[in-house]
Nucleic acid binder design. Structure first.
Lengths: 206, 206
DNA sequence: CGAGTAAAAAATGTATACATTTTTTAAGGG
DNA sequence: CCCTTAAAAAATGTATACATTTTTTACTCG
């Protein structure tokens, strides 16, 4: 497997320390490659928002905090609704079929956090792709990548799984009945509500 | 100077070919360093959206197109207004002073594209920073980086400079008179109008 | 003549060794 | 005792050499 993928998994499973610089040497020993591919991975992960600079050199795993979460879900609400409205009238039945399949797969419990995050994004991605707006789509995709870092809370203490499942099916139904207005409002609430729940939890444990 | 900075400048001045893979060897000869720092620069630039993947390996300079421009200015309108509204009531007089200084500096003609882009972002950044929303701010910053690639059109054939100058002073005046509603609307129009102008021009030369 | 394929060329990916920068540590002075 | 500062240690940054992958080229077969 690719090194940067392994680092992501370990990050999500809290196998790597937050707030202190990640040492290239350590990582190279840990993953059994030289420092060059480690450097490449760290640069990419920094670019994707998984890592942030630490002082003048080096990178670290950013702390989770309610302010960041709030911003992420705010942006998701704005941009995903925009993208969804562009896609709505052009969503293919094939896409709907696939969205249903993804929903079923999300129903299984035996999923790692990273797999669940991946599938969750694929669900939304499937609904948005017929908009054919690559640049907007890409920014939304980046947000969804960042969001994965908070999924440990959502699916752990917040018991978000059931709610999320239900809302996915609801959304599909609204698309099938071609009720654009309702679907848009529902999607916005779906995102905003998840954000509110997470933010208030994060504030509380702070 | 940093290699990635040099590459950016050359990109903006059309000194590097679009659409074909950038060769690490060539770049290493061109900038007089080995391939390792070139690789690092390319990875970072890809992460920042200056470069896109080319096939299974390598990167290339993306083509400019109206669809991307439209998305970028759409997202800017949404997110910058959001950020600006969060900042508005907390903007310090120091920030306003600095914004005025930046406006003056933008008045000079003897600026490279990259300098002009940098200053233009600094102007907006100064107005937004008191919002203290790092994550939202960072996404907006990234959009403004991407936008720089289109500045050759805006300040060349579209004669955007005078308009932009005027609008910057207007915006400052509205902040000083604490008219939030008006300032927000003005900012949105400022961004949307620039986007419309650019998009219609790009469609035309397509 | 075109499509498919295999060999060669050329590119990217990686390891090791060295250079430079940053951080840490410890010593000295206020 | 704390702050400053300089030396040492440890980290990141870079160059060269080699490995692997990708792309190109040229050839064969239909």
């Amino acid at each position: 497997m690719d090194v940067s993928q392994s680092i992501k998994e370990d990050m999500l499973n809290n196998q790597l320390p937050r707030g202190v610089p990640l040492r290239q040497k350590e990582l190279s020993l840990r993953y059994g490659v030289s420092r060059i591919p480690i450097r490449d991975a760290l640069l990419s992960l920094k670019g994707e928002g998984w890592l942030v600079p630490h002082g003048k050199a080096g990178v670290m795993i950013p702390d989770l905090n309610w302010k960041e979460a709030e911003d992420l879900w705010l942006m998701r609400a704005e941009l995903e609704c925009l993208l969804f409205s562009m896609a709505f009238d052009r969503i293919k039945s094939d896409d709907l079929t696939q969205a249903k399949i993804i929903t079923q797969r999300l129903d299984k419990d035996a999923l790692s956090l990273i797999e669940r995050g991946e599938l969750n994004w694929q669900f939304h991605h499937t609904l948005y792709r017929s908009a054919e707006r690559p640049t907007l789509h890409q920014v939304v995709a980046r947000l969804n990548i960042q969001v994965v870092r908070y999924m440990g809370f959502q699916y752990g203490p917040l018991g978000y799984k059931a709610t999320s499942q239900y809302e996915h099916s609801q959304l599909i139904a609204m698309i099938e009945s071609k009720d654009k207005q309702a679907a848009l409002m529902f999607l916005r609430r779906h995102i905003e509500e998840a954000g509110r729940l997470l933010v208030s939890y994060l504030k509380q444990i702070d």
